[in-house]
């Protein structure tokens, strides 16, 4: 056991980092959201909740909902793709697993922006995918792939997939194999073993990965800008525009505060779900 002082010393760098670079900026954001925009930009220090009543406008809510829909689709597809991949990796011989996991994170070795630009090169009307499909005669006219909601979801799934694979893999690697064997011995078909044994036990990993994708996607503004041709506005773009185009920092701060609240609630819900799962398991194990 560490002494109180030693514990504090170990925690200090992390706490300072989070305090200075996360808590303080969020507090500034929160405070600014209760002031007014000056006529020429900047902030008039007059207390008001007006920015929040303005944010309750259907126009802004619809952008939140649209972002939630795009982030939700990205989460769904990421999980559907990641689960089998994580399963395959977890089933591979132990020595090969490490190599496969390196491959999963390999895309992170290049810049996010460059990877997203690569998709623009692939997806545009004169791009590789259209040219390829035309060359083999599958399509006559180029398809509109870029600058669509589809392209945004694709970009988000592509960029965040590794996180989901890793979290699900971690859950699968911890899974007790004897439970699967027991289920098979008792005559359960493969799909039932998966649904009743494997999936419930790995759900915390799925939830962690899913919340990760959702939270990162809903606030993303680069992918919708580049792959959506700026035609589809997500809440990240809305906030960005309030700060930079409209120079309305207080309103941008209010919108950002709402978004942060939504994200925090999701993370809380996920943490509670995980805790409850762990609690239930402990209770079960404690039973004679």
């Amino acid at each position: 056991m560490l002494t109180r002082g030693a514990r504090l010393a170990y925690l200090a760098p992390g706490l300072l980092w989070l305090g200075a670079l996360l808590v303080v900026p969020c507090a500034i954001l929160l405070v600014n959201s209760f002031f007014l925009r000056g006529v020429y930009g900047g902030i008039d220090y007059i207390w008001t909740v007006e920015n929040y009543t303005r944010a309750a406008d259907w126009l802004y809510l619809s952008i939140f909902l649209k972002s939630a829909k795009i982030a939700g689709l990205a989460t769904l597809f990421a999980i559907l793709i990641a689960y089998p991949a994580a399963w395959a990796i977890a089933q591979a011989p132990r020595r090969r697993q490490a190599a496969l996991l390196v491959l999963v994170i390999l895309p992170f070795w290049s810049n996010y922006l460059i990877r997203t630009y690569a998709w623009m090169v692939l997806l545009n009307r004169e791009g590789l995918i259209n040219e390829g499909l035309e060359a083999v005669g599958l399509i006559g006219e180029p398809l509109t792939l870029l600058n669509t909601e589809f392209a945004i979801v694709l970009g988000l799934v592509y960029n965040y997939l590794p996180f989901v694979i890793l979290t699900i893999y971690a859950a699968l690697a911890r899974l007790d194999r004897s439970l699967i064997e027991a289920s098979q011995d008792l005559g359960a078909p493969g799909w039932r073993t998966f649904l009743r044994v494997v999936l419930p036990l790995t759900l915390p990993g799925v939830a962690a990965g899913g919340v990760f994708v959702f939270v990162l996607s809903i606030g993303n503004f680069i992918t919708p800008d580049l792959l959506g041709g700026q035609k589809i506005q997500m809440v990240g773009n809305l906030i960005y525009d309030q700060f930079l185009s409209a120079r309305d920092w207080p309103f941008g701060a209010a919108l950002a505060t709402v978004l942060i609240m939504v994200m925090m609630m999701l993370l809380f819900a996920q943490a509670i779900a995980v805790n409850r799962g762990a609690g239930r398991r402990e209770a079960r194990e404690a039973r004679p």
Partner: peptide, 16 residues
Amino acid sequence: GEGQRDFSRKVTEVMA
């Protein structure tokens, strides 16, 4: 100036 707010809201409407 004062017109910026209505202007920005309309721009958001177009972009969304």
